[in-house]
Amino acid sequence: MLSQSLLLGVITAVGLFSNSFSENSKVYPQTPPVNNTEINSYAQAVLAMEPARQHAFEEIKKMIGTGEIPQIICNDPNSINRLPQKAQDIAVNYCVLSQKIVQDNGLKSDRFNQITMEIQNNNSLKQQVYNTLLRLQQTPDSR
């Protein structure tokens, strides 16, 4: 079971490591409200992609060594191109897997990204996602 501080770290890390997935993400002037179904889908996707994110991060960290790992944004080729070639492959594989996980959990990549951005600015939504993550961790059969 994830601890409370780790859950908040997961949300933050997902926002940092995979802020965007699709090549043609759109910016919307106003994000539509996030409903309970989307919160549940978002939380399930975050939990499903976390082991892959941790693995990718650790593998890239090994390749870079003592240097700091730059922020990796899946739809920003420059953020990936700053990595060594093998690390680029790991990052791209993670991005592709994450996009599939998001879609498998009933969200489009653009909507996942909108929710991620909204969480950073909306404490109420952040708390709802956090509570959903806790609930899913306590009752894994509800996924």
Rank of each mutant, 00 (worst) to 15 (best):
V10D: 01
Y42M: 12
N93S: 06
I64C: 03
G106H: 01
S3R: 15
P84L: 05
M49A: 09
L107G: 00
N131I: 04
N35D: 13
M49H: 05
A48R: 14
V10S: 03
A52P: 05
D110M: 04
V46T: 13
L8T: 10
S5V: 15
Q4N: 12
N121S: 09
P70I: 01
R135C: 01
V129W: 00
L7T: 13
I90V: 14
Q99M: 09
I101M: 08
L8S: 15
P33E: 06
H55W: 07
I73K: 09
S20H: 13
L97D: 05
S79M: 04
N24F: 03
V102I: 13
P140H: 02
S124D: 12
M1L: 12
C95G: 01
Q44C: 11
N81D: 07
V14E: 07
C74K: 01
L133E: 00
Y42W: 08
F21N: 10
K86N: 12
I64T: 05
V96G: 05
V46N: 06
V10I: 14
I72A: 02
I11D: 00
N78L: 10
L136G: 00
S5K: 11
Q127R: 09
P140I: 00
I115W: 01
S41K: 04
T12E: 10
S20E: 12
